[in-house]
Nucleic acid binder design. Structure first.
Length: 273
DNA sequence: AAAACTACCTGAGTGC
DNA sequence: TGCACTCAGGTAGTTT
């Protein structure tokens, strides 16, 4: 499942492939993903234009043309694969790109939770405008997060971390792993996290994301393979999906609880309330 | 208003 | 072997 490190890895893989290259063909194989695909706007904005810039915001990737950008989200099961032609060769191929001279990229997303949208220059997009600071960017600070959490009545730190309006791009896996590494209970109310804990949380989150990206970098070449799963490297997980397995620190069994209809994995012994 | 819940979707896994 | 069922997850939109 693409989380922020996978999206960043995709962005880095796209740069040598399509940056400053011209989009010469673009086919959409269906009208909708999570949202209707504004195919006319996208074709008008990007077809026969050079990709001037490739950026990431949370789990969104933007391919910038002169007048706007193609906004890409991979949802749960989305991926890009390089292919030998425009012809879809895999089930659930929803869009096919050709960049000059002979770069073919297929957008594949079985569950269709992803999206392809258009962001005009200087207008932004409602999906992007509501997103909090990127955990890897400079804009995010412990003071700011503590201030944000101060007004929260009930929300747990785990749900706080996963709320993209507060922090961009932290999914279930990295929320669990970060809280384990920072030794903070996922159930702890966000407003009870003090300054030094916020500093620790943010540095831990950055460290885990960056190490995961670095691990992805080593398998970057797999991006080209037809098996997209190889691009989604398995970062060494300490707690996620490890219910009843011994904690790697204290050997107590890892607990699994449900928070807001999402599984949370944590060590009751190591992670303090 | 804040926080939790639901819908969207398919494939993998389980139990019969 | 196959069928029916459950679960997973990102996040916008809805409900509590």
């Amino acid at each position: 499942m693409p989380e922020l490190p996978e999206v960043e890895t995709l962005k880095r893989a796209l740069i040598p492939l399509v940056l400053n290259k011209r989009l010469v063909k673009l086919n959409f194989l269906r009208k909708n993903l999570r949202f209707p695909i504004p195919s006319t706007k996208i074709r008008k904005g990007l077809l026969n234009q050079d990709v001037a810039k490739i950026t990431r915001r949370g789990k969104y990737i933007l391919l910038h043309g002169p007048d706007g950008a193609l906004l890409i989200h991979l949802g749960m099961s989305g991926r890009f694969t390089q292919a030998p032609s425009m012809k879809p060769f895999e089930k659930h191929t929803h869009a096919v790109f050709k960049f000059a001279p002979e770069i073919y990229l297929h957008y594949i997303d079985p569950r269709r939770f992803g999206c392809l949208l258009w962001v005009p220059n200087n207008q932004g997009h409602p999906l992007l405008n509501k997103i909090g600071p990127d955990p890897l960017g400079k804009a995010i600070t412990a003071d700011e997060m503590k201030l944000l959490a101060k007004n929260c009545k009930k929300i747990s730190i785990k749900n706080f971390l996963m709320d993209s309006k507060r922090i961009a791009g932290v999914g279930n896996i990295y929320a669990c792993e970060t809280l384990f590494a920072a030794k903070i209970s996922p159930k702890k109310p966000a407003r009870r996290i003090n300054s030094s804990q916020w500093t620790l949380l943010l540095s831990t989150l950055r460290d885990i994301l960056q190490r995961s990206i670095a691990a992805g970098g080593t398998t970057l070449r797999d991006f080209y393979s037809t098996d997209g799963n190889q691009g989604y490297y398995k970062f060494s997980l300490a707690v996620y999906g490890k219910e009843n397995e011994p904690c790697i620190v204290c050997t107590q069994p890892i607990k699994r609880i449900t928070q807001s209809a999402r599984s949370t994995f944590y060590c009751k012994e190591c992670q303090r309330p």
